[in-house]
Write a protein that binds this DNA or RNA. Structure first.
Lengths: 326, 326
DNA sequence: ACCGATCCCGGGAACGGTCTCTATAAAATA
DNA sequence: TATTTTATAGAGACCGTTCCCGGGATCGGT
């Protein structure tokens, strides 16, 4: 339209100096009139990057991860990045497929929280081979040398267990997750070590390995109820398991917290409104998301140092872990 | 490596017929040895599409939308598409920004559920102008001529209200959402019409317009408690509001369901485990997601007809709406 | 022996930008 | 006045594909 070359137009629209002020003005004007916007795909091809960061999480319906996504998106959008989210559905094979998709989409970096099924990490090598920046959060892969963001699982589980002990409980059961998961393992270790410190035995019959779908909570609850020595406290690795257990306990005439104290994990909103209100552990997964995104962006910008960040969690005490009254 | 042109390589690797079977074999072999994968970005530029579908929803932490995302991703991935998710955070301006991002990213289509703040729809015109396929779901925009997927909000709210009436309730309060939202409006209308059908008055003091964050439920509950004529049932537009209300009612010595029956919306897992178990309305948001994705894919494939789909919901009766005992 | 059809394959444009290199005129300097 | 610098703009390569078009070789038929 202006009879000038595309090179000049390109210069005029970018911050380049090599262009006459008047021609630049004319170009800008025409561009606005035509509602011109540069083609992102062409740019991607030229610059060899997409301004997309990929995220692989187990499930969006898990509120913990939903909040983390919020944190990631906040930081990413602020920096001009889009976010592509994949769900592994707790399956190792779809996790692998997700990875392939993201690599094929040429994302500039990936944030991952591994599925509960994943016990090997070979498929993540594809990222390292291609030099794609990657950050693991929460459910990390310990065998891989990458940046990572975790919560103080061990310490907070230790603290939670000690809290139960301080309330006069000495038969403390735990609903743990699958032990191949980093978080489950460390939480369990915190629980075990707290018992040890207070000279309490670690009893097999008090240890329940549930999956994350809480599909068998009712059966597990009955197991506990029928034990010759019934526990006087349960530390559940997530709130929904705790709440469902509480429901079944109450159905059997077992009082909370008088007979059994309950402690959850995640501090969902609902904790405040169940009967009795559920003590729980507040994990700020939103912050987990933001720091993971920050680490990743730093790597994308060129930093090659591996960083490990810790996000502190907090014990929130409510009535479900009140002192023992006999 | 094989001394042949890139054209031939391209033909060999695609389903083209114009290539010797033997050379094709050699090409495929070398390709595998080199771990070759076509550059998606270059392909995007050439084909003028990205195989990405964009999604704009209010919040991922809202379980309803988290499930819908699951449905969308399932269908999309099956068809070879990636999904780019944006959250509007219930804000009309970030919704607009999300739209800009998705357009800039050249997504092949968009699935939208509008924010509760959105009362005008001009910013969606950008999609129609560019001929980008779009499907609205659940929270649709009535003024825009597009494909859409909704639930039978009116009918199910009518049915729920009649259920309460059948249980002997005649002072039924409602916790409604913002009325500029399609879903809230229709649910409210169903409630109102059911009352009318049974010759019950529609009382202003029984109508609560909460936002979706349930930030003021405690205050609203007290309002209801202090009314000269206290309601004997509450129909809450989401389960969390219902559960929190139940908690406050019980704190005031009000029995559920004897004094006040409670009916929720969404049928969250937690409904089964609160005291008493909460009757609710099951919206299969996963199906909402899958059908929305199917409609969109059909449009991307070239279909120009606007389709409107309905996904049926279901009343799930539990103890919180048991019959009135005086 | 000639010709048309068929089979393969290579050349090169195109997608929409950026960027390097070069060209030209004007201005500044020797 | 001759020469160098400066300001501005254009030409064209490049990113990695697809695909259209044309051309050479082989083959079969007359």
């Amino acid at each position: 339209m202006l009879g000038i070359s595309k090179s000049t137009v390109s210069r005029a629209l970018s911050e380049h100096t090599d262009v006459n002020a008047e021609t630049r003005q004319r170009v800008i004007e025409v561009a606005r009139k035509l509602n011109y916007a540069p083609n992102t795909i062409a740019l991607n091809l030229k610059q060899q990057r997409t301004n997309i960061i990929g995220v692989i999480i187990p499930e969006t319906v898990n509120r913990f991860f939903a909040k983390a996504i919020g944190g990631i998106q906040r930081i990413a959008n602020l920096a001009g990045y889009n976010v592509m989210i994949c769900q592994s559905d707790e399956s190792s094979t779809t996790e692998k497929n997700n990875l392939q998709s993201l690599i094929a989409a040429h994302v500039d970096g990936v944030i991952i929280s591994v599925s509960s099924e994943t016990d090997h990490t070979d498929h993540f090598d594809a990222l390292l081979q291609r030099n794609i920046p990657v950050v693991f959060f929460d459910r990390i892969s310990e065998s891989l040398q990458t940046s990572q963001v975790v919560t103080d699982n061990y310490e907070i589980a230790f603290e939670g267990t000690e809290h139960l002990i301080a309330q006069g409980r000495n038969k403390i059961a735990i609903v743990a997750g699958p032990l191949n998961l980093y978080v489950s393992k460390h939480r369990f270790q915190g629980y075990a070590d707290a018992l040890k410190k207070h000279n309490l035995p670690l009893r097999d019959e008090y240890i329940i390995h549930s999956n994350f779908h809480n599909s068998d909570i009712e059966a597990y609850t009955k197991q506990l109820i029928n034990l010759p020595e019934r526990p006087d406290a349960v530390f559940a690795i997530n709130d929904y398991a705790a709440i469902e257990m509480m429901y079944h306990f109450k159905k059997h005439g077992i009082r909370i917290p008088e007979d059994i104290a309950m402690l959850g994990f995640n501090n969902e909103n609902i904790c405040k409104f169940v009967e009795p209100p559920l003590s729980s552990i507040e994990l700020s997964s939103y912050d987990l998301g933001t720091t993971a995104a920050e680490l990743l962006l730093r790597q994308i910008k060129g930093s090659r140092e591996l960083e490990k960040k810790l996000v502190k969690s907090k014990l929130v005490i409510r009535e479900s872990t009140a002192g023992k009254k006999s």
